[in-house]
Amino acid sequence: MKNILTTVPQRGGLKQWADVEKIFQGCDSEEDFWTFSCRYFPKESGPGALCFMVHSGFVRGYFTILEYSDDPVYRYGTDQTVAQEFLGNKVKLAVWRPVPQQPMTGFQGWRYTDLQP
């Protein structure tokens, strides 16, 4: 099973790494998770594989892939008052682990990677 790599979009409350890192540190269970949307699920990856995250030109750490899902997900904005529903294919991730920063150019979507913890 292959690991994957994706980029955190730098918009809204996700522009600064310190803010993103606080969110990621709270993603430590199936109830507190991070998702990203995708058109197609990675066929050569799956639950138990790792997903490395790029932000501000660096690989910052990785999550464990919990599942692929097309169930609706509700996300709160920075005001934490109104949840917005997101539909479509999503990769559900949990248990954030930081790694020493490695330079990496951001991109849209996901890619397979040879990165290891």
Rank of each mutant, 00 (worst) to 15 (best):
62 Y>T: 04
11 R>C: 09
7 T>S: 13
110 W>A: 06
79 D>T: 11
14 L>M: 15
94 A>C: 14
28 D>M: 02
57 G>H: 05
21 E>W: 00
88 G>Q: 10
45 S>G: 13
84 Q>Y: 09
69 S>G: 09
87 L>C: 11
114 D>C: 02
23 I>E: 06
42 P>V: 03
82 V>L: 14
107 F>T: 06
90 K>T: 05
74 Y>V: 07
60 R>V: 11
79 D>K: 09
95 V>I: 11
72 P>G: 03
33 F>H: 10
112 Y>E: 13
112 Y>K: 05
99 V>D: 08
26 G>Q: 14
39 R>Q: 14
55 H>I: 12
34 W>F: 15
115 L>S: 09
94 A>L: 04
25 Q>H: 06
47 P>M: 09
26 G>N: 15
17 W>Q: 08
16 Q>H: 11
73 V>K: 01
34 W>P: 00
63 F>H: 04
63 F>T: 02
44 E>H: 09
19 D>N: 10
60 R>D: 01
71 D>N: 03
78 T>I: 10
18 A>P: 00
31 E>Q: 15
83 A>F: 08
116 Q>L: 10
3 N>D: 12
52 F>T: 07
15 K>V: 15
15 K>T: 13
85 E>Q: 14
102 Q>H: 05
93 L>C: 11
43 K>G: 07
106 G>T: 07
41 F>A: 10
50 L>H: 10
4 I>L: 09
104 M>V: 01
2 K>R: 14
117 P>M: 04
106 G>Y: 02
74 Y>I: 07
112 Y>S: 09
91 V>W: 00
88 G>E: 11
106 G>P: 06
41 F>D: 04
69 S>C: 03
56 S>G: 13
60 R>N: 01
32 D>A: 14
55 H>W: 07
111 R>W: 05
